[in-house]
């Protein structure tokens, strides 16, 4: 039992890792994804090499225990998205 949102895409409510075509990698809870891009809630952005961690090292770390949000809402334009993965599958 809970609140469900049937009009949203299959990734709605799922925490995803969005790798970009640039140095940033983003983790957040997907609200929806459409032709404009992906819309995230409670997201964190990591830049490759920040804090001495590569993108993949950062992802491995957040996959264990989670991440601290830096943004309440974030939209990543479709042309900047390299890949979208479910954090729970990493």
């Amino acid at each position: 039992m809970g609140t469900f949102h049937q009009n949203k895409g299959e990734l709605h409510g799922i925490t995803v890792v969005v790798d970009t075509t640039g140095p940033e990698i983003v983790v957040g809870r997907c609200d929806d994804m459409d032709e404009r891009g992906i819309f995230l809630h409670e997201a964190d952005v990591h830049r490759d090499g920040e804090g001495g961690r590569s993108k993949e090292e950062y992802v491995r770390r957040v996959a264990q225990l989670g991440f601290w949000k830096k943004h309440d809402h974030l939209m990543i334009p479709r042309e900047k998205i390299a890949s979208v993965r479910r954090l729970g599958e990493i």
């Binding site: 039992m1 809970g2 609140t3 469900f4 949102h5 409510g13």
Partner: peptide, 12 residues
């Protein structure tokens, strides 16, 4: 606990 059905609906 959480209201969100996407995850809490399975957690409980």
């Amino acid at each position: 606990n959480s209201v969100c059905g996407c995850a809490a609906g399975m957690a409980r």
